[in-house]
Design a protein around this nucleic acid. Structure first.
Length: 736
RNA sequence: GUCCGGUUAGCUCAGCUGGUAGAGCGCUACAUUGACAUUGUAGAGGUCACAAGUUCAAGUCUUGUACCGGACACCA
């Protein structure tokens, strides 16, 4: 056993083992209260009037478990937060979890059915909700504890849950205000109906799946029409063609003709509309407004009748005549058979490839239906309230779409990388009214009451005999107000005044349309401001071959396993270095392992520096030219890392700090210093010792946001006189 | 169909406002019991997809082509 140098704590004599330190360090941070900006001010580590910096955590599913996507998100946000905290800002990172209503209640329903053969309808609304809530409450600690394992410096004293009382009130308030502004309306519109889950879903929850089906051509009087869905055709009494289609020039708009159809003769009306594509098939089509969005629009344009053919469970209605009461899936073959007998089938194309709408959250086939639902009107003009939006002032006439465009066009909210601004604009321009009611029970219940054809919009029941709307709100409705509901809105709180608009929203780019746009919509209209100044999009974490991680492929890398094996620091770095924003990142276990080596390298650098330095004298050492040069390089690295973080180039900042520490400090500076440190020139030696200590402390600070645990573990062992604060997490970011 | 990306070393990718081509992993040789169980030094390896243009100068800017990918829309 080698003799211990006087300066060296025992701990450095063994390799760095993350598992020995991480949970202790997290508790230490948590106990210090420094995650809470108010405590930082109280304890004097942050000025009371310092500039605020805030991020609201995109809330993970309360019943979920941590995956690499979360880990990447937490790493990025924690880096930003720790950096700004060290810069002396009043820094808040606010945690929360999401009820993920659809996923959660589905999970409970499935489980219930499996074990007890009970559906939610057997149980009833109240009892079912109790079960879901119990399940959510029970599971929430899992995701919270896993979040802590990543080293996330979240202010847990401000924890929010999408369905807690404060958030519930905020959601109700948001609905009522939007209603009063005339932006929320109830109407009969075509919606995406999922017969399996018995609910509507929004346009962007629809997922198109390619499928091959027979395509039928039917004789419809003198016309030939095509369809993949004969079961919707019973009520077809309009035949639509393009006004310029020469083949049908002899027919006039509005002209009526008699045709023989599935269940007997029918009077058909000719409709000329540009929606009919002359290139496709015969150029003529019949329409089913109740079960097709496009047909619905045509019917609206011409004021046509709309008839329901299929009910909410997928059963044919009396209009189907002899087929009524049959499920559409079973009826199709029988319908074709009958039409064949009647000689109505012109021909069949057996291998027609098309995209079928399904529910991305459960896989059920979507059956468009006309239903009475609640919508947010994105095109309606209204009068703007108080506004801090550049270019829009109180009293201006605006639409939600305009607001959504304005704040991105004028740069008040910026996106990294900026190409997402284009995707955002494209999406906003194509936006239709947003259906916000859902026929599920777990969620924020719509604050609307009905009695004898009367309707009142308010939170509490207006009195006896009033029935509340049974529907709940789309989960994105509550997510849209997340940046300010978490800060206490609609109360006029100090948090809201200080931390809103938030500084940065960080999220995966796959979620842009769902969430980012909705937050902008809700915040601009309700608060007259932006929800965040910058949006940072991280890429999706993929396996080393660039494939999506999935259970079925068996290529999932579990962040918790990696933290256990290599430490949170290594896991974080592996998700940052080489991960340019907006680009997917390949991840391999070897990469993570490599950064564990780096943590140990840093550990050994410390060991070397400490064992070669004695307590410094008070006299300022005389620096050699080389000493000056070393410090100049250090300042340059500090500048580079700082600029890169400020510019959201975290992948470059991390790489530069890493490269400097390993290949400059360790490989060059330490190597060449051995000679000086063992030499006889005591002045040169103490000068170099001072320089090395400076390099070490600065490196620890530069690395702290990226790898908080090992840097803090080392910091805790450093002699007091080397430290400007007792905890690295609140030490001063190096000046340069 | 509309929009948005990508193409640079064997692999995965950096390269911001034009100024001699970079990192990690892998590979080859050598050194090393050391501050380092996890080390160092050196090396091989590139028509920066293709074509034209702007420029004293293009991986970088412009236009076009080819291939790969993504988002959205449509699908009677």
């Amino acid at each position: 056993m080698e003799e211990k140098a006087p300066n060296i704590p025992d701990i450095f004599l063994k390799p760095y083992n993350p598992a020995d330190h991480e949970s202790k360090l997290y508790s230490m941070w948590e106990d210090s209260g420094y995650f809470n900006p108010d405590v930082c001010v109280e304890k004097g580590v942050t000025d009371a009037d310092a500039e605020p910096f805030s991020i609201v955590l995109p809330p993970p599913n309360v019943t979920g478990t941590l995956h690499m996507g979360h880990a990447a998100m937490l790493a990025v946000e924690d880096i930003l937060v720790r950096y700004h905290r060290m810069q002396g800002k009043r820094t808040l990172w606010l945690p929360g979890t999401d009820s993920a209503a659809v996923a959660t209640s589905e999970k409970v329903e499935k489980e219930m059915y499996k074990k007890e053969k009970l559906t939610r309808h057997d149980l009833g609304r109240e009892a079912f909700l109790e079960r879901v809530q119990a399940f959510a409450e029970e599971s929430k600690n899992t995701i919270i504890n896993q979040t802590k394992k990543m080293g996330s410096s979240l202010d847990w004293s401000r924890y929010a849950y999408t369905l807690d009382d404060t958030r519930y009130r905020a959601v109700m308030e948001a609905f009522i205000r939007l209603y009063e502004m005339g932006l929320v309306y109830r109407g009969h519109r075509i919606v995406n109906w999922d017969p399996k889950m018995q609910t509507t879903i929004s346009d962007d929850e629809v997922e198109y799946v390619e499928q091959t089906d027979p395509f039928y051509y039917f004789k419809y009087g003198p016309f030939t029409i095509g369809t993949v869905r004969p079961e919707t055709k019973f009520g077809d009494k309009y035949v639509v063609m393009h006004p310029d289609d020469a083949r049908y020039a002899e027919y006039a708009h509005g002209q009526q003709i008699e045709v023989e159809w599935i269940n007997g003769p029918i009077t058909a009306t000719i409709i000329k509309d540009e929606a009919a594509d002359p290139e496709l098939g015969s150029g003529a089509m019949t329409i089913t407004p109740w079960h097709s969005a496009v047909d619905f629009e045509i019917a609206e344009r011409h004021g046509l009748d709309k008839e329901q053919i299929i009910d909410e469970r997928g059963i044919l209605l009396p209009i189907a005549g002899e087929f009524a009461g049959q499920h559409i899936k079973k009826a199709r073959a029988a319908i074709i058979e009958k039409m064949q007998v009647k000689g109505l089938v012109a021909r069949v194309d057996e291998k027609y490839v098309h995209n079928v709408a399904t529910n991305s959250r459960g896989g059920g086939m979507i059956e468009p239906q006309i239903k009475e639902q609640w919508f947010v009107d994105v095109d309606k003009e209204f009068t703007m309230g108080p506004s801090t939006i550049t270019g829009i002032t109180e009293g201006d006439t605006v639409t939600l779409k305009q607001l959504m465009r304005t704040v991105v066009d004028n740069g008040q909210t910026t996106m990294y990388p900026d190409r997402f601004g284009k995707i955002y604009r494209h999406w906003v321009d194509n936006l239709h009214d947003w259906c916000i009611s859902r026929q599920i029970w777990y969620g924020h219940r719509i604050p609307v009451w009905y009695k004898d054809g009367e309707m009142k919009v308010q939170t509490e029941t207006p009195g006896d005999g009033w029935e509340q709307d049974p529907d709940t709100l789309d989960t994105w409705f509550s997510s849209g107000i997340w940046t300010f509901s978490t800060l206490g809105w609609p109360e006029d709180t100090a948090d809201l005044a200080t931390f809103h608009p938030t500084s940065v929203l960080e999220t995966g780019y796959d979620i842009l349309p769902f969430w980012v746009a909705r937050m902008i919509l809700m915040t601009t209209s309700l608060l007259g401001t932006i929800p965040f100044r910058h949006v940072y999009f991280h890429g999706l974490v993929r396996d080393e071959k660039g494939k999506k991680m999935s259970k079925s492929l068996g290529n999932i890398i579990d962040p918790l396993d990696m933290i256990g094996k290599y430490g949170a620091d290594a896991t974080r770095l592996s998700l940052i270095v080489g991960a340019a924003p907006g680009h997917d990142m390949p991840l391999s276990e070897d990469k993570i392992k490599g950064y564990k080596h780096f943590a140990n390298k840093l550990w050994n650098i410390t060991r070397f520096v400490l064992s070669n330095t004695e307590t410094q004298s008070d006299t300022t050492p005389k620096l050699s030219t080389r000493d000056e040069e070393i410090l100049a390089t250090l300042r340059q690295v500090t500048t580079d890392v700082t600029d890169d973080i400020e510019g959201f180039r975290l992948y470059l900042a991390a790489e530069k700090a890493y490269h400097y520490v390993w290949h400059e400090l360790a490989d060059k500076i330490l190597e060449e210093s051995k000679e000086v440190l063992n030499g006889s020139d005591t002045d040169a030696r103490s000068a170099r010792q001072a320089v090395l200590l400076e390099c070490l402390t600065t490196s620890l600070k530069l690395l702290h946001p990226f790898m908080p645990f090992v840097t803090e573990a080392i910091w805790q062992e450093l002699p007091k006189e080397m430290k400007d604060r007792d905890m690295l997490m609140v030490a001063h970011w190096p000046t340069h």
